[in-house]
């Protein structure tokens, strides 16, 4: 009995986890496909698609002031915010163009 239950629940776990573990789980269709800029997709795996990041120490982006987000991204990009987790953000945003930064800031800031 246990063996069967184990196998059945195990299979279910695989299916659920497979989706959760999807490498780039920040697919465009997870969020708002009509509005989200392509460059924003890489943000979602940590910052969440619904305004509630799954990671405890990752800030909420949705609803923030666009200008604040733009300035923050530039600070990470230029190394004015550095050390600790800022190093992670630097790696994420270092290749973004000005247009990408504005688009990301506008989209997250404009989404409630």
């Amino acid at each position: 009995m246990r063996s069967f239950a184990h196998t059945a629940s195990f299979t279910a776990a695989i299916m659920i986890a497979w989706a959760a573990f999807s490498v780039i789980d920040a697919k465009a269709d997870d969020a708002k496909p009509d509005a989200m800029p392509t460059a924003a997709s890489q943000c979602l795996s940590c910052h969440g698609t619904n305004g509630n990041p799954a990671l405890k120490d990752v800030p909420i982006l949705l609803g923030q002031q666009p200008l604040y987000l733009e300035n923050a991204i530039r600070a990470y990009q230029e190394g004015r915010r550095t050390g600790g987790q800022a190093l992670v953000m630097h790696e994420i945003v270092k290749d973004l163009s000005d247009a990408d930064i504005k688009a990301i800031a506008t989209w997250f800031g404009g989404t409630q």
Partner: peptide
């Protein structure tokens, strides 16, 4: 393995796979 010796990465892959 699902049926004998493990021959696939699939059961190992999900981080939250049920484990004893």
């Amino acid at each position: 393995g699902i049926d004998g010796l493990l021959e696939s990465e699939k059961p190992i892959w999900p981080l939250d796979a049920e484990r004893d």
